[in-house]
Simulated scan of single mutants.
Amino acid sequence: MYSKEVIVRNKTGIHARPATMFVKMASSFTSDISIEKDGKQANCKSLINILSMGITKDCKIKISADGFDEEKAVSELVKMVEAKFGEA
């Protein structure tokens, strides 16, 4: 199991477009990947689960993965969040 915390800095948090990007990237890895906010946990490969988390700007989230490519999965997803999902 590998995990890392990151703060969501883009204006709108993880709404529909960023969530879709997040799920697409998470689904490209074989590891089981989850996201945690305020003690609530969700599967990163499910759009509905991600959207139901209500992740807004300045929320601290923890991304965890368990499996063959766990470190790469967490690192790439954290990079995406830190890059504000490509927000200009």
Rank of each mutant, 00 (worst) to 15 (best):
H15L: 08
E76H: 14
V23L: 00
Y2E: 13
E71F: 14
F68A: 15
K45A: 01
M21S: 00
E36M: 10
G13N: 05
I7K: 13
G54V: 00
E87W: 04
D58N: 09
S75I: 11
G67V: 13
A65T: 06
I35Q: 04
K84Q: 05
M21P: 01
A65Y: 08
C59T: 13
K72D: 10
D38N: 07
A42H: 03
K72L: 15
K57G: 11
D58I: 08
G13F: 03
F68I: 13
T30N: 10
F85E: 00
K79R: 13
T20A: 06
E36S: 06
F85P: 04
P18I: 01
F22L: 05
E70P: 10
K4D: 06
F29W: 07
K40E: 04
I33W: 04
A88L: 12
I63C: 02
N43T: 06
K60F: 08
I55R: 02
C44Q: 00
K84W: 05
R9Q: 10
K11N: 12
T12F: 13
M1N: 09
M25G: 05
F29A: 09
C44N: 03
I14T: 00
A88V: 11
V81L: 14
E71L: 14
S28K: 01
T12K: 12
K11G: 08
F29V: 03
I7H: 13
L51N: 13
V8S: 11
S64Y: 04
L47P: 06
L77I: 07
H15P: 00
A83E: 12
S46R: 07
V78L: 15
V74Y: 13
V23K: 02
D69C: 14
S52A: 12
L47E: 02
E36W: 05
D66H: 14
T12S: 14
E82P: 13
S3M: 09
N43P: 05
I61K: 00
K24S: 14
K62T: 14
I14R: 03
Y2A: 09
E71Y: 15
R17Q: 01
S3F: 12
I7L: 15
E70C: 05
D32P: 07
P18N: 02
I63F: 07
M80R: 14
F29P: 01
F22S: 03
V74M: 08
D38P: 05
L51G: 13
C59G: 08
Q41K: 11
K4P: 05
T20Y: 01
E87L: 01
